[in-house]
């Protein structure tokens, strides 16, 4: 049998996935772009409306604020966790890694509902606090930014931990030892020698969490209860409730562009290929 042309073989292998992507993803996205400049009237009307709208501005600012806080908290917690797993846990390492990965096997929807059970007005946390007499009236954990943040951090934590963990496990212990052997205290050795080497992992994890948080829908929608309107939910509202396809489409284009700009800027500091493709 004659050997198939190399190029042809390549395209044959790529084609099925490519076809699905074009048909179900790229084509609809292009349509969205189209809608944003054609509905209800042709032109940039939707965009001017978007830039003039106070509600949109508030929602975008809220989205960026929540994404930023989630990122910072995830990095702080995740760094400690990754540091512990890679430097101290020897026997417990597989178990700890398993616990980090476990949430990936439970749907985000279920995890978000679990938080509602915990944080609600008569949820487990409030009940426990009231029973022990620490508080007299329930604290509002839900349907505000606090609730959204708690649940977002929980959902995003593994995305922060994994890149940092990969990075840290590539750093041999001899660097810290060498620094201490040369006269640096444990803290000094960490600050001067270890921490700078973990920055690529921190940037990767941070970028991943931030970008995912920007477009996050389920968790903010459930925990925010309509009061914490992040941009994805705002878009859903425009389309589902007000049937305002034009503005909804324009907003999704704006979110896409904002995310692209962030990735582009970050790409100058972080190796994106490493962040998204080469995680073991």
């Amino acid at each position: 049998m004659p050997r198939m042309n190399e190029k042809l073989r390549y395209w044959m292998l790529v084609l099925p996935a490519l076809a699905v992507m074009i048909f179900f993803y790229i084509w609809p996205v292009l349509n969205i772009w189209g809608i944003s400049v054609t509905e209800p009237a042709t032109g940039l009307g939707n965009y001017t409306k978007m830039f003039d709208s106070n509600a949109v501005r508030v929602s975008f600012m809220l989205t960026f604020r929540i994404a930023a806080i989630t990122t910072v908290v995830c990095l702080l917690l995740g760094y400690i966790l990754a540091y512990t797993i890679s430097n101290f846990a020897t026997k417990a390492r597989p178990l700890m890694l398993g616990l980090v990965l476990l949430p990936f096997w439970v749907s985000v929807l279920i995890r978000s509902f679990a938080w509602i059970v915990l944080l609600g007005r008569s949820g487990l946390v409030n009940d426990a606090l009231m029973d022990t007499g620490l508080i007299a009236t329930p604290i509002r954990f839900m349907h505000n930014e606090t609730g959204v943040l708690i649940a977002m951090v929980h959902v995003m934590l593994p995305f922060a931990v994994l890149p940092m963990l990969t990075n840290m496990r590539g750093i041999p212990g001899s660097y810290m030892k060498a620094a201490r052997g040369l006269g640096a205290s444990e803290w000094r050795a960490f600050r001067d020698v270890y921490f700078p080497q973990t920055l690529p992992g921190v940037f990767s994890g941070g970028l991943l969490v931030f970008v995912l948080s920007l477009g996050f829908y389920i968790t903010p929608a459930l925990l925010g209860g309509g009061r914490v309107m992040m941009i994805s939910e705002y878009i859903t509202y425009q389309i589902q409730e007000f049937l305002n396809w034009g503005l909804g489409a324009a907003l999704s284009v704006a979110l896409l562009v904002a995310t692209a700009i962030i990735l582009f800027v970050a790409g100058r500091f972080v190796n994106l290929r490493k962040t998204f493709l080469e995680r073991n």
Partner: peptide
């Protein structure tokens, strides 16, 4: 002072 096998230069 200690010199390590893999040098451990920062």
């Amino acid at each position: 002072a200690m010199v390590f096998q893999g040098y451990a230069l920062f």
